[in-house]
Design a binder for these strands. Structure first.
Lengths: 349, 349
DNA sequence: TTGTAGGCGTTATCAG
DNA sequence: CTGATAACGCCTACAA
């Protein structure tokens, strides 16, 4: 039953040649004749030989593996990013270890530990909402592991970063609202210690100011990432005497929360209330009304992040200097029903 | 910069004691005095020592790891199941390697190969739609790796199985439809080579028959798992002279496809058309109308699957016989708006 | 209580 | 072409 694993020793014994020769044959070493190679491969196949990655990696000193840490894998933004990373990795013969932080700092640290133990060569991470300090990431770097941040990042950490033009596109959202006649625009943000949420808020505030619209403090909320929080905030604001006529949220979950609150109160979307979220999650296209959102090109972000690693490897091997930098991927507003007021044409901006 | 990894040799050299003693201290071996243990641990912490899992696993002959293969991680059914597996694994000090088959047989085989190479102790799998034969899974078993199937399984493979009472609950769905006055019930199924889809269809057919309702061949479709296929089928049937008044689908994606087709044709749901899907995906609760679905208790399925492994390990260690068996978890209809016709009370069945 | 030696499976190096 | 040997980092008999 529980057959012992077949090793190259077994093959060597059976063929009456040495282990090292078997190894070379299996790896296509040029110093081995085709005849022997074929014979060895045939036997390996027959005996169902599988190399032991543990041993290979130990020997090589690298696992040829990239670790990925994201808050949740069941959000399409992240699963698409992972798909992008996976694609580039497999092209380069690397594997992936996927970890979830569930937006908890402790879980994120655990994941970091696991990945160090697993001897990964690189960690691609989107920071959890509960993470305030980058020390655990410095720990990775101290172990010679390349760190690449995407989307949610900590600016002060010296690492590659793949991000959206958050401030700019947030401004675009506000401008789009204004153009459509919305002018009492509320904002529901995320934790301020993460740069992207600061930038999205900055873009919102700046654009309101430039447009000469008043900034109402009671319309601006931070650190309310959950659907429930957003829903509560919306329910609250919508029952004010002078309620907002639009919500810009930094995530689609929040946008959904706002939509549900509006529904519950009988507020019509988009006629009485415009809503735009962030990330272009797959559910935004199937709720009714469909939700407008900022598409961050998640898959491309993932691909870019992984490529950054392989490119920097090549440069390093050549001894060239690696300039740490931010890679900005332009996001784009996907205009759907929830912000389609007035003469706005169907389709995107 | 790229500091070499710290090993127990480094610690040993620095403290002037032997490697094996360091190892014992780090692992809390009883033969080491508390004083030494503390000193070693302190230094390990200071020097940022991290054990190398590759080496440990190679030595131990097991990676203490479970591999998981599912079609897609961004479906809540699977991500919840994974959450359940993760929970049980971490309780037992095991790690997880997650692979996606994207419903392709080739990708599934690749994943199997990777997991063998990684020396996993067990593979928990939900079979891809493209998989017709269990030979690759036999390969796992031949390498001494326990195989546990859940949800989508191949019956002929001798392994643990954690599954729903598919036939029974499918019958319940049909009965529920009938009770509410729907009696021209169409069925959109999956590939017949996967047992669960056969069983769901069987439950549907059997119950129709028992209820004395005619079985209309043009209302029954196999192997149409995608949203698009389901949508096309629904659009087709709904424009017949005598269209169906209900759809039972074996997935929620299909149910969504039907809903969208109905919307496009102006068919009212649930008044003119009832819809019930399968898996209780998270989006079923946020579309309008909300979609009724069969809740398979995905997280519990995951936990049960993982527990099965650890329990069988314990039994095997005691030398006891392991009786291979199916573990059935009762699914439950979650009745939402899409099937709420007549005097049906809100809430579940 | 402490240390020595061997081996987990693989591959690179060097010698025939 | 072919093979012996050391080493990757760690742990465990066994010895002292």
């Amino acid at each position: 039953m529980s057959n012992k694993r077949v090793t190259i020793y077994d093959l060597a014994r059976e063929m009456g040649i040495s282990v090292s020769y078997i190894s070379k044959a299996l790896n296509g070493h040029p110093a081995v004749s085709e005849r022997v190679k074929n014979a060895v491969r045939k036997l390996a196949e027959e005996r169902n030989y599988k190399h032991n990655s543990q041993a290979v990696n130990l020997r090589r000193g690298s696992a040829r593996t990239i670790g990925v840490i994201v808050p949740q894998i069941d959000k399409s933004f992240f699963s698409e990013a992972i798909a992008g990373i996976e694609e580039v990795c497999s092209e380069n013969g690397f594997s992936l270890i996927i970890c979830q932080s569930h937006d908890s700092y402790e879980k994120e640290c655990e994941a970091v530990s696991t990945l160090i133990h697993q001897n990964v060569d690189c960690v691609i991470i989107s920071i959890s909402a509960g993470t305030h300090s980058p020390d655990h990431l410095r720990n990775l770097q101290a172990n010679g592991i390349e760190v690449i941040q995407f989307d949610r990042y900590i600016d002060e950490l010296d690492s590659f970063k793949v991000i959206s033009n958050d401030e700019e596109v947030s401004g675009d959202v506000v401008k789009d609202f204004i153009r459509k006649g919305y002018n009492r625009i509320a904002f529901i943000g995320g934790p301020e210690h993460l740069t992207i949420f600061r930038l999205r808020k900055k873009g919102y505030l700046k654009t309101l100011k430039e447009a000469g619209l008043p900034i109402l403090k009671r319309f601006v909320f931070d650190d309310s990432l959950s659907k429930e929080q957003a829903s509560a905030i919306a329910a609250n604001l919508l029952t004010l005497e002078n309620p907002p006529d639009a919500f810009f949220t930094v995530s689609d979950e929040q946008a959904l929360g706002v939509l549900q609150a509006a529904r519950a109160l009988g507020v019509r979307v988009p006629e009485d209330l415009g809503i735009v979220g962030f990330a272009n999650e797959s559910f935004t296209g199937i709720v009714s009304p469909t939700l407008s959102s900022v598409d961050q090109k998640s898959k491309e972000m993932g691909k870019r992040a992984a490529n950054l690693y392989f490119e920097s490897m090549t440069v390093k091997q050549r001894g060239g200097p690696v300039s740490v930098k931010k890679d900005i991927i332009k996001a784009k507003i996907i205009s759907r029903e929830s912000s389609r007021r007035d003469a706005d044409k169907p389709g995107s901006l």
